[in-house]
Nucleic acid binder design. Structure first.
Lengths: 92, 92
DNA sequence: ACTATATTTCGACATGTTTCGAATTATAGG
DNA sequence: CCTATAATTCGAAACATGTCGAAATATAGT
């Protein structure tokens, strides 16, 4: 997981998905709070193929979920992942 | 920081320093709960020069502290770092 | 001063990662 | 079935990282 987050572009993508939900809402469930690949691409200045590669890495690491929805592919982040990660750094 | 933790050897080193303290104790302050470089080397199957390189990276990332104490160099982890990291993954 | 131990620096090489463009697959809508 | 749009796969080049051994530095004790 840390390896997946070690790249600036991937961290930016993760961060974006992390902050797309109103606190307490489950991103994955609420389909209005998902980003498709194209939306995540905005403002990133990398080729589509590079974006695709990075999203695949994030998915492989178990950090994000992906699902095709027509022409688009939606991406979201399960809140469990955040809990798991924050618990790794025990205190608080 | 995630880049520093992205390497298995560095993550192992960090994890070791993370769990060297009784909960609630400040590792840096309690000098009996520090590891010197040599102690951290045990069980890691890498050359001393490689270990040195990895510790330098962890230090550069602000993850660990280092201080020479005679022939040895002590390493420890400030609890603030753990708080900072766990807060990045908001929930909880 | 000399020696032994602990750690770091340096240079080199092998391995991995990031990136792109071109070609490919997937899907929706005429 | 053809076209346009969205996204992925593939292969190649550029770049970064991990690793080691040899040499250098640091320190304590003789």
């Amino acid at each position: 997981m840390f390896k997946a987050l070690s790249n600036p572009h991937r961290l930016a993508l993760f961060y974006r998905l992390m902050n797309c939900c109103t606190p307490g809402t489950r991103c994955g469930m609420d389909e209005t709070r998902r980003f498709c690949v194209g939306e995540l691409h905005e403002g990133l200045d990398i080729a589509p193929s590079t974006l695709s590669h990075h999203l695949k890495e994030l998915h492989r690491a178990g950090l994000i979920q992906m699902e095709r929805r027509g022409k688009h592919v939606d991406c979201w982040l399960e809140p469990e992942v955040l809990i798991q990660l924050s618990h790794f750094f025990k205190p608080d």
